Each structure stands twice: as structure tokens, then as C-alpha cells.
Amino acid sequence: MDTNSINRYASAIREAIVAHEADIECLDREIGDGDHYINMKRGCEAIAGLANELNGLDASDALNKIGMKLLSTIGGASGPLFASFFMAMGKSLKTSEAISINHLAAAFDAGVQAIMQRGKAQTGEKTMLDVLVPVAQTFKHMAEQGHTRPEIAAALKKTASEGLESTRNMLATKGRAAGLGERAIGHLDAGAKSCQVMIHAVCDLVLAG
């Protein structure tokens, strides 16, 4: 993975988030704070604006720069969480000269672990982690088993969608949704939806070759 790939993925993610504006905003209005989509769009635009600055950097430094930018750009709880994700990924790739699929899987897992630590959260709490954790696990397992990138991308799309759907019947223990108690049951989590959208966008690029 190089900065050209990172910029391509960032562009695809931005387009996908904008395309799913109605879905994300609807979910957030139902059980969230109502500002999730705005923050996600702001973060995507901030990353897109870094494209020229990222050129020439190695993947580790580029991801760290993205994390720092998000920390100062996205409001609410999302900023520090996504910043931690990218910075942890960058740190994980720091010593990797030739980045393999196994390195990427390990870096993604490191990013997810950073979100868990920063947010003091785990799976089963109706958050983005209900998508990110199973995706990280599937990614690492399939990379270790030697599956091809298209095979992994297809599996990660399926895992992300299943993770999103799993949030529907969960009680929420984080954010505004936690105060709704059982009234939040039956609704998908907006943060999980955003993560599903982003993962699908990246995987679709991989599948398109």
C-alpha cells in the first residue's frame, strides 16, 4: 500500500459516505446525537484535502498524518476514535518496508484495538466496533490462511454487513442511545453503518482491480 492507494481509498470512501447521507442521517436521528453524518463528511473532506501533502510519504507517515488531521477536524467522540485508528495503523506499519496483506491485516487490527482502548468499549454495545472487530478478525484469519485479496475483500464486505445487522437487536451502552434503553432495540447503529459503508467502498475498489 502506498500513498496513491491511500488517496484512492479516501476518495472512494468520501463518495460512498455522501451517497449514503440519507441512510446515515436517518439512523442517527433515531437513536443518536444527530451530528454523526456531518462529522463523517467533514472528516472525509479533510482527508481528501490532504492528497497533495500525502504524496511522497510512506504509508506509515501518511496514515499518521491523516490521524492527526482528523483529531483536529472531527467533532464529538468520533474524532479521537478515528484519529486513534489511523495513528495506530501507521505505527503498526512503521517497520514494514514491503507491506504485505498480512501487514495490512495486522495494522487494521491494531487500529481497531486503539478504538477499543480509546473508547473503553467492546463488541455487543451497539457501536462501530460491532462491525470493525469481526472485520479485523476475518481479515487477519484469511490473510494468515493465504487467501487472495479479492477473496478477502468479498469476505470482509459480508462480515461488515453481518456486523451492522447484529446491532439492530442490541441494547446500547454508549452515547445518547444508551439513555433510550429498550427503545433503541430495532434500530441499526449509525456508526456501525458508516463503517460498513467505508469497508464496502474500499473492498469494491480491490474487487474492481
Rank of each mutant, 00 (worst) to 15 (best):
A83H: 05
G49L: 05
E162Q: 12
K126E: 01
Q145Y: 01
A77S: 15
D189R: 03
T159H: 05
G56T: 07
G186T: 12
F85N: 01
A16G: 06
A155P: 08
Y9K: 01
H20P: 01
A19I: 03
E162A: 13
E165N: 12
M128P: 01
K41V: 15
K94V: 05
G90M: 08
D204K: 08
H36P: 02
L50K: 08
E165R: 13
S96K: 14
A160L: 07
V112Y: 02
R8E: 14
D33E: 11
H147E: 11
I17A: 00
E53G: 12
A59R: 04
R14M: 03
M128G: 05
L207K: 10
F139V: 05
R42Y: 00
C26E: 13
K65C: 10
T73S: 14
H200A: 14
L164K: 02
S84K: 02
A48W: 02
L104A: 11
I38R: 13
K91H: 10
M116H: 00
I185M: 15
L70V: 06
R183V: 08
K41Q: 08
I101C: 04
T148E: 11
A12R: 13
D35I: 13
N64T: 12
A143S: 14
D204S: 13
K69E: 13
T167Y: 03
K69R: 15
K157C: 12
A51H: 06
P134D: 05
L207T: 06
A51D: 03
R42G: 01
E97D: 14
A10G: 06
A10Y: 02
D189S: 10
G111C: 10
E30P: 00
K41C: 04
T167P: 00
V133M: 09
C203M: 14
G49H: 08
H141G: 00
S166C: 06
A88M: 01
S100E: 11
A88V: 03
L71A: 13
K158W: 00
T127R: 03
H147T: 01
S78M: 11
R149S: 14
M87W: 03
T173H: 11
R176K: 13
K120E: 15
G186R: 09
K174E: 04
